[in-house]
């Protein structure tokens, strides 16, 4: 590992538990690089996660780290941010953790526009439990609990976040890492709720069941299917089918929740 990044890791905890070719390490690396680029104060950064493969990431990262219960990272993170708005909060979560069991917390954190950067390690599968379909598993894909093909429709997490009120929404991939780092930086700099959906690869559980057992095959799929927001805007619904649209979807300046609460305090204390 590059020397200047070592301080951000708990090096004695590495190597990580993730399988060979798992994209989680790539996203974790991108997060750390973005933090380094922004020179955030390490002791004022809190990284919160739920349960699952992705949620093990904070354990390797040398910050204030909180590995909570399944789906609840945003609830804990909301408490931390409310109590101490000076802290920079990241939530690292998986597609199942965030959009299934944690779906309620997700839409409400977005609605409040609380200053939390949520990075979803979206590998379309429950990895830790061995490959069950999640709300992000594409229709017709196979999973241990969808042995005949998945009949559920999958969420578009970016659309969901935006309609729930998130004020920065973007999607990156583990193939396009330089762009991913830039998007994470943008998300971290954004004041308000930022959502970054990162299309990730799970060769072990998603890949193996869906004729892409090598990480290379999975990466190639991302490369082939990715289109930029700009190109996508000129494509028909049909042409977009199965495509991964990457880039920034939404950015707006809306009063941030803890700042609004600071005004409540002022009002309650007799100010205007």
């Amino acid at each position: 590992m590059r020397k200047e990044l070592q301080k951000y890791f708990r090096n004695d905890k590495l190597p990580h538990i993730w399988c060979p070719g798992c994209g989680h390490g790539i996203i974790t690396g991108a997060v750390v690089r973005a933090i380094d680029n922004l020179k955030l104060n390490q002791s004022k950064v809190c990284i919160v996660s739920g349960i699952g493969c992705s949620s093990r990431a904070p354990g390797y990262m040398n910050f204030n780290t909180l590995h909570t219960t399944h789906g609840r990272a945003l609830a804990f993170a909301t408490g931390i941010k409310m109590a101490n708005p000076d802290l920079k909060i990241l939530v690292l979560t998986g597609d199942g953790d965030c959009s299934a069991i944690g779906g309620n917390h997700f839409i409400h954190a977005a609605r409040r526009n609380i200053d939390i950067t949520t990075i979803v390690f979206n590998n379309s599968i429950y990895g830790m439990t061995g490959g069950q379909y999640s709300p992000m598993t594409p229709k017709a894909a196979f999973a241990t609990t969808a042995p005949y093909g998945n009949i559920d429709r999958n969420f578009d997490l970016c659309k969901l976040a935006q309609s729930a009120g998130a004020t920065y929404v973007a999607r990156g991939t583990v193939f396009h890492v330089p762009q991913l780092i830039k998007l994470i930086e943008k998300a971290l700099k954004h004041k308000g709720f930022s959502l970054l959906d990162v299309v990730d690869i799970c060769p072990t559980y998603f890949g193996r069941r869906n004729k892409m057992s090598s990480p290379i095959a999975m990466m190639n799929k991302i490369r082939e299917m990715s289109v930029t927001v700009r190109s996508a805007s000129k494509m028909s619904e049909e042409e977009l089918s199965g495509k991964i649209v990457i880039g920034e979807f939404h950015e707006e300046r809306v009063p941030e929740y803890t700042e609004e609460y600071a005004k409540v305090i002022e009002k309650a204390q007799g100010g205007n």
Binding site: R2, L14, P15, P20, G29, A30
Partner: peptide, 20 residues
């Protein structure tokens, strides 16, 4: 540096002479 950035295991460093 794409290989370094895409390495899930932080096993690659690409750079100038200051790599130890």
């Amino acid at each position: 540096k794409l290989c370094e950035l895409r390495c899930p295991d932080y096993a690659i460093i690409v750079g100038g002479e200051n790599i130890e």
